[in-house]
């Protein structure tokens, strides 16, 4: 029977695809293509955090550091080394993975909040290097990023699309790829090992799971997602500043991933959508960003510890039950 129904993973991906395909029908202006592109790119980073925080239960307060590495790989690689942008993206991801491994290996053997503290320091360090090494990075003013060449590629194929539309499609496809990978992982041997750490490390150990090793796997994977997201962000904006690696951005990313429900890919995407749109909708947001982020984090922790989506789902279930 249920072999003819699409699997849960396929259903989530189809729903995402449908949203991405239909949304432009109600876009009042090209500006919305830009916002959705930003949502998709942020969501890719947040999906990485869902793997780390939602699956494996480990917190990083410096993930923007990896976003910064990815972003600057695409600024520095082509400008100073003449690398093609796509290769710079891949090398940035490899560098982030290697750094995550180096940083994570010693501390993930320890229990507790060491990862939070050390990643916090890591993020600050990356931002400091980006600010200070201005011969390489342009310093606090940032630097320009070379074109990925998407638009000319699309033109060469004979399609007539605006730049914003091209990026909308490209970032949407990248988001689908990221979601697909994370959902595959969830229901795989590695994914089950990661998710078991979240609930009971001691039980995970006693069924033979090498806890330190799987924490490291989650951390490295999430760094790769962050780095790829950072590269895409740089390529889309055609400009980077050290803020991209900043502490506020790290907190913003964690807030996105817990807001929607840290344990689910769909929740992560919802959180990214909300927190990406909010500053555009409310100009006050910009002036009080830190305060508002703090309030949202506290609100989620107090009123909806499972995040937005699971809470709404539970509420819907309760209503249905009482209606019966």
């Amino acid at each position: 029977m249920d072999r003819f129904l699409p699997s849960p993973t396929a259903r989530i991906l189809l729903a995402l695809l449908a949203i991405l395909a239909l949304a432009p029908l109600v876009f009042p202006s090209t500006f919305y293509y830009r916002i959705f592109t930003l949502i998709s790119i942020n969501a890719i980073v947040v999906i990485g955090l869902v793997i780390l925080l939602g699956y494996a239960g480990q917190i990083s307060l410096g993930h923007a550091g990896f976003v910064g590495l990815g972003a600057y790989a695409n600024a520095i690689g082509p400008t100073h080394l003449g690398l093609p942008p796509l290769l710079a993206l891949v090398l940035g991801a490899a560098l982030s993975a290697a750094l995550a491994w180096l940083v994570g290996r010693p501390i993930l053997k320890l229990r507790g909040l060491y990862l939070a503290v050390v990643t916090l320091g890591f993020g600050i360090l990356v931002q400091m290097v980006l600010v200070n090494e201005s011969w390489l990075t342009g310093g606090p003013d940032g630097m320009a990023v070379e074109d990925l060449g998407l638009v000319s590629l699309v033109k060469a194929l004979g399609l007539k699309m605006k730049t914003a539309q091209v990026w909308y499609v490209f970032s949407g496809l990248m988001l689908l790829l990221a979601a697909w990978v994370a959902l595959n992982l969830r229901d795989s041997p590695t994914g089950r090992a990661l998710r078991s750490l979240h609930d009971s490390e001691v039980a995970a150990r006693t069924v033979g799971i090498n806890v330190a090793r799987y924490k490291l796997i989650a951390f490295v994977l999430s760094a790769v997602f962050a780095s790829v997201g950072g590269s895409l962000l740089a390529l889309f904006n055609r400009f980077v500043t050290p803020d991209v690696a900043g502490f506020i951005h790290s907190v913003e990313l964690v807030t996105m991933s817990v807001l929607g429900g840290a344990a689910s890919v769909l929740g992560g995407i919802a959180g990214a959508a909300l927190l990406t749109t909010l500053p555009q909708a409310l100009t006050v947001f910009h002036d009080f960003e830190t305060v508002i982020l703090g309030l949202i984090m506290m609100g989620v922790a107090i009123f909806m510890p499972d995040g937005l989506l699971p809470n709404l789902a539970n509420r819907a279930k309760r209503t249905r039950r009482t209606n019966r």
Binding site: V181, N184, L185, S188, P189, T190, G191, R192, A193, R195, S196, H198, D199, S200, V202, A203, A204, T206, V207, G208, I209, I217, A263
Partner: peptide, 28 residues
Amino acid sequence: QIFHQMTALENVMAGRHLMERRGILSDL
């Protein structure tokens, strides 16, 4: 010491960890 967020079936599946060949790329 239960894996609360998993189903009962997934709890037992997690117990088979050592019997599974784990290729991270294949899993992704």
